[in-house]
């Protein structure tokens, strides 16, 4: 109920209907980071649209743009689950709704 109201607010508040989110992952590089994040997304019915990733002196940085149209459950549960997934692997994982980027960078 709260979530559906939240989605409506996002639609009306933003300039266009918006169903994407951005996931950023930062931490020490290790094997299987992308696999783990992708699996966690799949569990929530979140589709990956784009990945930009690099490793700079053992530091792993990834930005994923994901489609949350088919999100199972509410957005904040997804945010919490991804953050928890990150903590278990000593990674910092943030999920942000795309409206914040549109607001800030588009006139």
């Amino acid at each position: 109920m709260e979530e559906s109201k939240m989605n409506n607010a996002a639609k009306d508040g933003g300039e266009k209907q918006s169903k994407k989110a951005v996931i950023t992952v930062v931490g020490h590089d290790s094997i299987g980071i992308i696999a783990g994040v992708a699996a966690a997304c799949a569990e929530f019915g979140v589709n990956i649209c784009e990945i930009t990733q690099s490793v700079l002196s053992d530091y792993f940085v990834m930005i994923m743009i994901v489609d949350i149209d088919g999100l199972v459950g509410d957005f904040s549960a997804f945010v919490d689950a991804m953050a928890a997934h990150g903590r278990e692997r000593s990674l910092e994982i943030r999920v942000m709704h795309e409206n914040i980027f549109d607001s800030m960078h588009e006139i």
């Binding site: 950023t24 930009t52 743009i65 914040i100 980027f101 549109d102 588009e106």
Partner: peptide
């Protein structure tokens, strides 16, 4: 339209 530069700037 999301672009990586804008995302990086905001996250930073």
């Amino acid at each position: 339209m999301l672009n990586i530069k804008a995302i990086k700037e905001t996250v930073n």
